[in-house]
Simulated assay, not measured.
Amino acid sequence: MQTVPVLLRLPTVMKITGLARSTIYKLMDQREFPQQVKLSRRAVAWPQAEIQTWVETRSRVQ
Rank of each mutant, 00 (worst) to 15 (best):
I51H: 13
I51E: 11
S59A: 07
V37L: 08
W46E: 05
R42F: 02
T53Y: 06
Y25S: 08
K38W: 03
R42C: 02
A43F: 01
A49K: 09
D29N: 15
V44Q: 13
A20E: 13
K15P: 02
M1Q: 10
A20L: 05
M14N: 06
P47D: 07
V13E: 11
E56D: 15
R31G: 07
D29W: 00
Q36N: 10
Q35I: 04
P5M: 03
I24G: 06
R9C: 06
T23S: 14
T57Y: 00
I24C: 09
I16N: 10
S59Q: 15
L27R: 15
V37C: 07
K38E: 09
M28Y: 02
Q52W: 04
R60F: 08
P47K: 14
R9L: 11
L7T: 08
R58C: 05
R42S: 07
R60K: 14
V37I: 14
L27H: 12
R60T: 12
A43E: 14
V55D: 10
S59F: 00
I24M: 10
G18A: 05
Q48V: 00
E32K: 15
Y25W: 15
V13L: 08
K38Y: 08
V55N: 11
L19Y: 14
I24N: 11
V61Q: 15
R60Q: 15
I16A: 09
Q35G: 11
P47N: 03
L27A: 05
S40L: 00
E50T: 05
A49E: 14
K15L: 07
P34D: 11
L39N: 12
L8C: 09
M1Y: 09
Q52S: 11
A49Y: 04
R9H: 12
S59N: 13
G18C: 03
M1T: 08
R41D: 12
P5Y: 04
V44H: 07
M14V: 03
R9Q: 14
A20D: 12
E56Q: 14
R41W: 01
W46P: 03
R31W: 03
I24P: 01
K26S: 13
V61L: 09
L39A: 09
R41V: 05
A43W: 02
T3K: 12
Y25A: 07
R58D: 02
E56G: 03
L39M: 13
W54H: 14
F33C: 08
P5V: 03
P5D: 12
V4M: 12
E50F: 01
Y25H: 15
L7A: 05
Q2G: 06
L8I: 00
Q62N: 13
R60P: 04
Q36V: 00
Q30T: 00
Y25F: 15
Q48E: 14
L8R: 11
